[in-house]
């Protein structure tokens, strides 16, 4: 349903506040505001709503921790990498949409896509690692220290951050953060209870 057309004078007050009037019209409105307390009150009220709304939303934005936006960037970065990768197997749209911020354990198709993408990026290093592993195996065969029978070789494994096969936080919302430093990696799930008003 279309809005009913606003009447002239109050609309002009709004345009005046928004700086949308030409010079002549603006001067006229200024004169009117000077003469008419009601017009002045309406102009002040427009400013009041503006300040309230802006302040309210900006406070809500300030309440979002920087780490959250960092997390968003990491996801953007990852998505841009995936977009730049050579044509992978198609991921169903529903799964692609749901991967936005959460880390979920991917089904076979998207896991393979991530692996192939990773291999493409790290091809040189992967080959290096394979050569090294071959050298280790060769040394192991030659050296053959005493002890129990052959044990599986624990090769260097590329680090993957935590993934969530499922996550439910009844009565709250959750945020996932991956942190990493020289002491190792960690994953944090922070649950915000439902009755918490964070910023809003």
């Amino acid at each position: 349903m279309a809005d009913p057309k606003p009447t002239g004078t109050d609309l002009e007050l709004m345009q005046h506040v928004d700086g949308e009037l030409d010079e002549a019209a603006d001067r006229e409105v200024e004169l009117r505001i000077g003469r008419d307390p009601d017009a002045r009150a309406k102009v002040d009220a427009l400013g009041e709503v503006s300040e309230l709304l802006r302040g309210h939303l900006e406070l809500a934005t300030d309440a979002v921790p920087a780490r959250r936006f960092d997390q968003i960037w990491r996801e953007i970065d990852k998505q841009l990498d995936l977009a730049a990768a050579p044509a992978p197997a198609a991921v169903p749209a529903e799964r692609a949409a749901s991967e936005s911020v959460m880390m979920v354990l991917p089904a076979q198709a998207s896991l393979w896509r991530r692996v192939t993408h990773w291999l493409d990026r790290k091809r040189g290093y992967v080959i290096t690692a394979m050569v090294s592993a071959g050298a280790v195996a060769a040394i192991a065969l030659v050296a053959r220290p005493g002890g129990t029978g052959a044990a599986p070789v624990e090769q260097a494994v590329a680090h993957r951050p935590a993934e969530l096969e499922a996550l439910d936080t009844p009565g709250g919302t959750w945020t996932m953060m991956n942190v990493s430093d020289e002491d190792g990696a960690a994953t944090v799930i922070w649950v915000t209870p439902e009755d918490t008003v964070e910023g809003l």
């Binding site: 951050p161 935590a162 969530l164 936080t169 009844p170 994953t187 799930i189």
Partner: peptide
């Protein structure tokens, strides 16, 4: 509070808060 099925690297820490 939480029901999760995480999969993570050995030696890494996993926090719930």
């Amino acid at each position: 509070v939480l029901d999760a099925k995480p999969d993570f690297q050995t030696g890494d820490w996993f926090f719930v808060g």
